[in-house]
């Protein structure tokens, strides 16, 4: 483990994670809303926002899958030191991190059980940028409709079709996050 792994955590964890959770809660309960978060300095290639989500939501009880180039020594060490999360294969993960391409096929991730739909994976999808353009979102959390530049549409439509099963997603870019729960209807636009 390098010295780098020991750095980049929350300076004041109770307060930083409270703010970060509130942002994550807003993001997931109001799909399409883009929020800023701060406090984490994870190693490359992880965005600040993804780092903040990991520090806020994962720990020794939540297996994490690192996809594609996110499965690197620097991040593994950083995550292990700061959260103690076990690193696992996609099928066993409670959280998964990577670009949308890295995470394919998303059908590998836990979709929940018919009697326990909560036993599903949450994807943290790294993006180049987030904007309120592109796909049209409707459903719980959205007054009329919202827009978000989703990486594709079909996978999220298929995910909605399985409701109440399915995965939930956070999208992250730089210090920004947005959320897309499985309950959202997504249309191409």
């Amino acid at each position: 483990m390098t010295l780098l792994a020991l750095q980049g955590g929350f300076a004041d964890a109770p307060i930083a994670s409270a703010h970060a959770f509130r942002a994550a809660l807003t993001a997931l309960s109001q799909p399409g809303q883009i929020l800023s978060v701060t406090g984490a300095a994870p190693p490359a290639p992880v965005s600040v926002a993804a780092g903040v989500l990991l520090l806020t939501l994962v720990d020794g009880t939540t297996p994490v899958h690192l996809a594609g180039r996110y499965d690197c020594a620097a991040l593994r060490d950083w995550l292990t030191f700061h959260t103690g999360a076990p690193l696992v294969a996609p099928e066993a993960a409670s959280f998964a991190l990577g670009t949308w391409a890295d995470l394919q096929p998303v059908g590998r991730f836990a979709q929940g059980l018919p009697d326990y739909p909560d036993r599903s994976c949450t994807l943290i999808v790294e993006m180049a940028a987030l904007s309120n353009t592109g796909s049209r979102l409707t459903g719980p959390g959205i007054a009329d409709h919202a827009r978000l530049n989703l990486p594709e549409v079909a996978a999220f439509q298929a995910n909605r079709a399985r409701f109440p099963l399915g995965f939930d997603a956070f999208f992250t870019a730089a210090d920004q996050i947005a959320g897309l729960p499985r309950s959202t209807h997504v249309e191409d636009f």
Partner: peptide, 21 residues
Amino acid sequence: DEQTKRMIRRAILKGVAVPGY
């Protein structure tokens, strides 16, 4: 404690994702 809050926060997010469950 922080671990307990994380556990509750994860549950809240699942609740938000599956309204009414």
